[in-house]
C-alpha cells in the first residue's frame, strides 16, 4: 500500500457475516476491514475455516441465500457500495468487473459444454452485441494467453488435466478483463509442479492486464511469490496486515503469524521437526471473549482472555495483539 497505483479499488469496512441456522449462529467473518489497491495484489492468508472464502463470496454477494447474511459493514468497489446494489446491477459487476477463480478446477467447469463455449458464454454475457467472429477471436486469444492451443476449445473439460482445467477457469475469469480478480486458493487442488506453472501464468497475466487481485491462500510461499500486500485472517478477524515486507521481515509479528511461519519447513534450519501451532481454531459459533487467538497463544497474558486487543499501527503494518498494545514493543523473539 506504499505506492498507490491509482487509488483504492476495493475497500471493505467493518464487514460482519454470519451463517444462521435453526440451531446456531456461526460468526464467520467478524468486522474485518481490508483494502485492495488498483493494480496490486492482496494475499488473504489463514487456516481452513478462518473466513477467507466467506469474505470472497460476500464481495460478490454470493453467500448461500438460506443461511448466509451480511450483518453490517461496507464493501466499496470503485467507490460504490456493493451491498446496496440490486441483483441486476450486481450481475453486471460479477464476471465483468470482479471475476472469481474457484478452488477446484475439476468441478468448476460444466462437464457437458466445450471449454470454448464456456469461455464464449462468459464473453457474451457482458458483451451482448458482439458479433460471433469477434467472440471467437477473443476465445482463441484468451486460450493462447493461458497457454492452451486454440484448437482445444472444441474439447470437453474431462479431456483436460487438472492444471489445464485451471487454466481454462482462469481464461474464463479473465475473458472480460475484470478490474479485480478474486482467486480462491487457485492452486490448492493442483500438484506442486503444476502449481508453479499456473502461479507464474497468473502473475504474468496480472501484470499484463494490470488486474488487481485478491488472492486467497494458506500458502505463505505463494504470498511471498506474487503478493504486494498481505492480510492474515484468523477466526473471522484480520489480525495482521501489511506489505509483504512487513509481514515477512518486519520487526512486529503477531504470535499467530509467527506460528504460521514456524509451521513451514525451512531448508536453512537444522530443526528436524516443524513447530505447528498447538490446538485448533475456536468454534466460530462460540468465539472466546478476549483475543480470538488467546487459547492457542504461547504468549498469552491475563488480559488476552478478557479484552479484545486494539489494533496498533506502524506505517502500513497493522496488527491486533496485546503484546504490542503500547505501540512501542520490539518484536518479541520468543513468540512461538
Amino acid at each position: 500500500m506504499l505506492e498507490n497505483n491509482g487509488g483504492i479499488l476495493l475497500n471493505i469496512e467493518d464487514l460482519k457475516v454470519v451463517y444462521k441456522t435453526d440451531l446456531e449462529t456461526v460468526e464467520a467473518v467478524n468486522g474485518i476491514s481490508l483494502t485492495v489497491m488498483k493494480g496490486r495484489t492482496l494475499g488473504l492468508v489463514g487456516e481452513t475455516g478462518a473466513g477467507k472464502t466467506t469474505t470472497a463470496l460476500s464481495i460478490l454477494r454470493l453467500l448461500p441465500s438460506t443461511t448466509g447474511r451480511i450483518e453490517r459493514g461496507k464493501i466499496e468497489f470503485n467507490g460504490q457500495d456493493l451491498l446496496k446494489l440490486d441483483e441486476n446491477m450486481m450481475r453486471v459487476i460479477r464476471g465483468n468487473q470482479i471475476a472469481m477463480v474457484f478452488q477446484d478446477p475439476m468441478t468448476s467447469l460444466n462437464p457437458v459444454m466445450t471449454v470454448g463455449d464456456q469461455i464464449a458464454e462468459a464473453i457474451e454475457l457482458h458483451n451482448g452485441k458482439m458479433p460471433h467472429e469477434e467472440v471467437n477471436r477473443r476465445v482463441e486469444n484468451i486460450l493462447q494467453m493461458v497457454g492452451i492451443m486454440p484448437q482445444r476449445r472444441f474439447e470437453y473439460p474431462h479431456q483436460f488435466s487438472g492444471g489445464m482445467k485451471q487454466r481454462v477457469v482462469i481464461a474464463i475469469a479473465l475473458s472480460c478483463e475484470p478490474e479485480l480478480l478474486i482467486a480462491d486458493e487457485p492452486t490448492t487442488a493442483l500438484d506442486v509442479t503444476i502449481q508453479a506453472q499456473v502461479l507464474n501464468m497468473i502473475k504474468d497475466l496480472r501484470d499484463r492486464l494490470g488486474t488487481a487481485m485478491l488472492l486467497i491462500t494458506h500458502d505463505l510461499g505463494i504470498v511471498a511469490q506474487i503478493c504486494d500486500d498481505v492480510a492474515v485472517m484468523y477466526a473471522g478477524e484480520i489480525i495482521e496486515t501489511g506489505t509483504v515486507e512487513d509481514i515477512f521481515i518486519g520487526d512486529w509479528r503477531h504470535p499467530y503469524t509467527a506460528g504460521l511461519f514456524n509451521s513451514l519447513p525451512d531448508l536453512r534450519s537444522q530443526a528436524t521437526r516443524l513447530k505447528p501451532i498447538p490446538g485448533l481454531m475456536p468454534d466460530p459459533s462460540n468465539l472466546p471473549n478476549g483475543c480470538v487467538f488467546a487459547p492457542r497463544c504461547g504468549n498469552r497474558m491475563d488480559i488476552c482472555e478478557k479484552e479484545h486487543p486494539k489494533t496498533v499501527q506502524k506505517a502500513q503494518h497493522r496488527l491486533s495483539c496485546h503484546l504490542y498494545a503500547t505501540g512501542e514493543n520490539p518484536r518479541r523473539r520468543d513468540v512461538t
Binding site: F102, D104, L125, I172
Partner: peptide, 11 residues
C-alpha cells in the same frame, strides 16, 4: 461449483 462459478460470472 460450476453453477456457482457461472453465477460469479454474472449469469
Amino acid at each position: 461449483e460450476y453453477v456457482e462459478a457461472a453465477r460469479a460470472g454474472g449469469a
